[in-house]
Write a protein that binds this DNA or RNA. Structure first.
Lengths: 253, 253
DNA sequence: CGGCGGAATTGACGTGGATCAATTACGATC
DNA sequence: GATCGTAATTGATCCACGTCAATTCCGCCG
């Protein structure tokens, strides 16, 4: 009891309308009274800690999750203990949309650092969306964004080499931090080299070597998890890939 | 006029309720009267021919497209005339969901063979969905499926080698043909080796060599575009990837 | 403060698949 | 049926990146 009181500050729950993420998250584009209605179905839990799961593959699906602070990775575990990282999720990003299809989660989601996460019961959200066209539209938009983002990732994995992939990854993080009001040039990675490699389809050693190479070339400053972007344009021209190889031929009519 | 009459058989337009795809497509799970309402907003065009575009990258977005017969590829063109194939779409599959976000198509869509395609004005569909919960739900499901499919593809590109990718591709086609009432063991490819390679992140030559290898190993019979699956289980065990390499290590807690 | 264990780095080496280069096989057109 | 252009196959070579192995670094805990 006393205990509960002491840590009660953890329970401070920011209403959607006061949340700094309102312009990236579901409330985007909603009228104030609709934000209130959305607010009424959001569950806000106490912070989770590194290693906690939001859900595991094959869990039955009830809620979508939105990162409020911290970061989360989604991944597909494989029998043999290995895993394929599918995504890293920053504040304002929605997790679980792939589970609507079968009412079952197709991947696992694990917290990378102490994080706050909002929970949205999907059936209630769906009901509300049917009555609030702008919310319905925003849901479609968010799902569309998820599709577009994954398409972008497919292109990265399909035809970019290792350095183009890592450069794109760093720029993606940089841009997302910026939108969230953090520095776009100075940030900390919450994931390991191993996880970055898994996400980008590269070996850990390759990731490590590229970080040192990028640093030697004056593109970034790397100190363990601490990243500083020194030459953003340099990274961008890497991604654009002057040195792009595969598949430059003409397609058939 | 006479002309129009002569080819008028092309204009035979199957209503959704009579369409053989009703159980895979948007009408899935809708009550008959709701199918009628959906039917009312569907535009059915005359068949398109090989090379015709449904839309091009950066076109403004108005309609979703559903393949009725034939096949369509989506791809991202690059300045230099190259392209990255993003997907192959068979009857009953929806195209254009990634465009909802910005009201602009993020990729191009081109018909691979003579094909019939239904067109759905998205704004009218959205309005209808707001009034027909089962349609709204079906739309969420279809978008969720798109996300889950792309996730699956990310895993393929992220950690599978060339033969695992091609085996998975063949099995995917086989399964999709089966659901559509076609043979799952004997079919024709509507796309070129080059397009397969682009889709799978492989060089044309690699695709070609793998086809011959698979044939030599008695997994399939290949004769140009004509494919016969001889040993489905063999292909499946390839995909499962006994010989799987990358990333079998333990993840951190 | 010292010792332990996982994470990261660095180096040496091997290989899967890209690239380059011919050759062959089709399909379209007249 | 001859001609041409593109698709597909096949072979030879190369290299980006994975794998293996050793070392260093850092956070953690007694």
């Amino acid at each position: 009891m006393a205990d509960r009181k002491i840590i009660s500050f953890e329970n401070i729950k920011v209403a959607c309308k006061n949340c700094s993420l309102a312009t990236l998250c579901l409330p985007m584009g909603l009228a104030p009274e609709d934000v209130e209605r959305l607010d009424a179905i959001v569950k806000r839990n106490r912070p989770l800690h590194r290693g906690d799961h939001l859900f595991r593959q094959d869990d039955s699906f009830h809620n979508l999750f939105v990162v409020k602070t911290g970061s989360v990775k989604t991944y597909a575990p494989s029998e043999d203990g290995g895993e394929q990282v599918l995504g890293f999720h920053l504040p304002g990003e929605i997790i679980g949309l792939d589970a609507i299809l079968n009412n079952r989660h197709g991947c696992s989601a694990k917290v990378l650092e102490t994080s706050a996460v909002c929970e949205l019961p999907f059936d209630r959200l769906e009901d509300l969306a049917a009555n609030v066209p702008s919310l319905q539209h925003q849901l479609y938009r968010l799902m569309s964004k998820e599709i577009a983002d994954e398409t972008h990732m497919l292109m990265l994995l399909g035809k970019k080499n290792a350095e183009e992939r890592l450069a794109a990854f760093l720029l993606s993080l940089s841009n997302r931090f910026k939108r969230r009001g953090f520095s776009s040039t100075d940030f900390y990675l919450s994931m390991s080299r191993h996880e970055i490699g898994s996400y980008l389809g590269l070996a850990v050693e390759t990731v490590s070597r590229l970080f040192t190479r990028f640093q030697d070339e004056g593109l970034v400053r790397v100190e363990r998890k601490h990243i500083q972007i020194i030459d953003r344009e340099g990274l961008e021209s890497l991604v654009a890939g002057q040195r792009n190889h595969r598949d430059q031929q003409q397609a058939p009519s």
